[in-house]
Design a binder for these strands. Structure first.
Lengths: 137, 137
DNA sequence: GTTGTTGCAAAGAATTTGCAACATA
DNA sequence: TATGTTGCAAATTCTTTGCAACAAC
C-alpha cells in the first residue's frame, strides 16, 4: 500500500524516500512557515537522521512542484505546505502562523490593473501581515 | 543652500554625506529595483568611489527610514525609491521595472479579512508580477 | 541493476561587524 | 571638536555543489 504522502511525492516525480516523507509529514503538522535551517534543527532534535543539504533540496523540490508556498523571513527563505488552489496569506509576525485566504477582489484587481498597463501577468501575491488573536493577548 | 536630497537625508536623521547623496541620486534615476551588489558595481563603473559596505548600510538606512521599498529578487534584496503614500507594485520580471499602483480594492479587502480573522494588521503587500509591454515585444 | 538520492565536506554568495581613519555638523 | 560615517578585511550566515556511498523502483 501507499500513504498519501508517498503518492504526493511520486505525483511530483520524486522518489518517496524516508527523508522526504519525514519533511512532508513535519510540514503537515505545522500552521507556520519554516526555514530549512530551522526544520533541520527540529528534525534532528526529534531524533530524525537527516542532513541539512537534504532538507534544503527537499524543500526546494517541493516548492518547485507547487506543494509549498515560500516566504522571505528576514533574508531567509521559509516554506509552508499549501493547498492546490491559488490563494493569499494572513501572516502573524509573532508566531509565524499563516492562514490561507482566497480573494476574488484581488484576482479581479490584478486583471484590471495589468490590462490597463499592458502587463502580461505571470503571477501575483497579496499578503497581510499582523498579529494573530492569540499573540495579541 | 541645500539640495532636496540633503533635506531628505537629514529629515531621516542621517548626515548628508557624499556617498549617501550618490546612492540617493542613483536611485532617483531608475525605475527598476537594484541590489546592493548591483548598485555598487554600477557606481564604481561610473567612477564613483564608494565601498560595498557603505552601499549596504545606506540602502538599509533609507529603507528603514521608509524611503525605499524592498523586494526579494531571487534570494537577494533589491531596493527602489518609493513615494510616501502606501501603494502596491507592478513588477516586470524581465527588465525589473516597477510601477507603483494604488488600490482601494486591496485596502478594503485587507481590513475586512483581518477583522474577520481577528488579526491586528501591521502591514500588507500586493504585488503583481509579469512582463511589461516593452519586454513583451 | 539502474538511476535517483543522500550527506558530508568544501565552495560560493550575500550580508554584517570590528575598528581605525575620516568627514560632517 | 564631537559624533556619525566610511571602507577595508575578516567573520557570519544562508545556500549550493562535488562526489562516493546508498536506497528506491
Amino acid at each position: 500500500m501507499s500513504t498519501a504522502s508517498e503518492e504526493e511525492l511520486r505525483g511530483a516525480g520524486l522518489r518517496a524516500t524516508r527523508q522526504r516523507l519525514t519533511v512532508l509529514e513535519a510540514l503537515r503538522d505545522r500552521p507556520d512557515a519554516v526555514t530549512a535551517q530551522g526544520l533541520h534543527q527540529e528534525l534532528r532534535q526529534a531524533g530524525e537522521p537527516i542532513g541539512l543539504t537534504t532538507v534544503y533540496r527537499t524543500l526546494t523540490s517541493l516548492a518547485d512542484a507547487g506543494m509549498l508556498d515560500t516566504f522571505d523571513r528576514d533574508g531567509e527563505q521559509a516554506f509552508r505546505l499549501c493547498g492546490d488552489a491559488h490563494h493569499h496569506h494572513l501572516v502573524c509576525e509573532v508566531c509565524n502562523v499563516i492562514e490561507e485566504i482566497t480573494a476574488e477582489e484581488v484576482e479581479r484587481w490584478v486583471g484590471d490593473v495589468a490590462q490597463r498597463r499592458g502587463f502580461t501577468v505571470t503571477g501575483h501575491r497579496a499578503d497581510i501581515f499582523g498579529i494573530c488573536a492569540r499573540c495579541a493577548t
